[in-house]
């Protein structure tokens, strides 16, 4: 399995990369390559030009200021998994992506631009209310994660737009967790639930829950959130709220040979409950 032919340029800056891709009819951006290169080898993707972002230092690294954590698009999952600045749910999920070698190369920007429905990161970013900063010929903008993921392998990125960084609120008193059911072959998510919760006065004050792996794009679990908001956090309330996730998943649940749509829909409540319990246990 070998890629078909393409030209290659290494961009020195985001501006150059934008210019190169927007002026070419069949160009692809290359970050860590761990979504794109497998697709090239299977010849599912056959671009004429690859624009390599890999050496743009400005796109790398995690920084925290004024209650916000900013993650450069080229930051690897390994870096995220080892970070104390990121919300726990992100570092925890990053450590479950692929394997150590994949985490050493795979990047945040590459991952979310690919928008694989079985990926872990979109779920986390939706749960965290992330802002995805992009730069294109028309300048820069920030896209809320809720709006970034459109469908299977489809994002709201415009032609020529490049993800530069992802911003999430820093975690303070909240607790967060990611619970994943693995496909036993690919190790991608059959189902992943990300939850972040804050507790005040003995009740759940702030809650964000998202699920992915089972739907064409990761979804926000509004029904679960509504059921638990303002409630004390115990097994009963969590189980009750988690059961609402079936409504959040909706009708468009994916199935494969290891996990049918019906199965995924049915186990979702238990997985959501585990994520909520773990998040609650971490909340201060």
């Amino acid at each position: 399995m070998y890629p078909s032919k393409f030209d290659y340029v290494r961009a020195q800056s985001v501006e150059e990369a934008v210019e190169r891709t927007s002026s070419h009819s069949n160009a692809k951006l290359l970050a860590g390559g761990h979504s794109l290169i497998p697709a090239l080898k299977l010849r599912l993707a056959q671009p004429d030009l690859l624009v390599d972002l890999g050496r743009i230092a400005a796109l790398k690294g995690i920084s925290r200021h004024n209650g916000t954590v900013s993650v450069g698009a080229l930051t690897t999952h390994a870096t995220c998994a080892a970070s104390d600045d990121l919300p726990k749910v992100w570092s925890e999920a990053a450590g479950l992506i692929g394997d150590p070698q994949v985490r050493n190369r795979g990047t945040v920007g590459g991952n979310i631009a690919h928008a694989d429905p079985a990926s872990d990161l979109p779920t986390v970013l939706i749960a965290l209310g992330a802002q995805i900063h992009v730069q294109g010929t028309a300048g820069s903008r920030a896209i809320p994660a809720d709006e970034f993921f459109v469908d299977l392998f489809t994002t709201s990125l415009e032609e020529g737009e490049i993800i530069t960084r992802v911003e999430v609120p820093a975690e303070s008193n909240q607790g967060s967790a990611y619970t994943k059911v693995f496909n036993p072959a690919s190790r991608y998510a059959i189902l992943g639930v990300a939850a972040q919760v804050a507790i005040a006065g003995g009740v759940c004050r702030q809650l964000r829950v998202a699920a992915g792996g089972s739907t064409p794009k990761a979804i926000r679990a509004h029904h679960v959130e509504a059921a638990l908001q303002g409630q004390p956090l115990n097994d009963t309330t969590i189980q009750h709220a988690a059961a609402a996730i079936a409504e959040d998943l909706g009708e468009e649940v994916i199935g494969d040979m290891y996990a049918s749509a019906a199965y995924r829909r049915s186990i979702a409540a238990q997985i959501a409950a585990r994520a909520l319990s773990a998040a609650a246990a971490r909340a201060r």
Binding site: N183, P184, A185, S186, Y188, D256, M257, Y258
Partner: peptide
């Protein structure tokens, strides 16, 4: 259906 290591566990 299980033609790669992505699908054959």
């Amino acid at each position: 259906l299980s033609g790669t290591f992505m699908d054959y566990a």
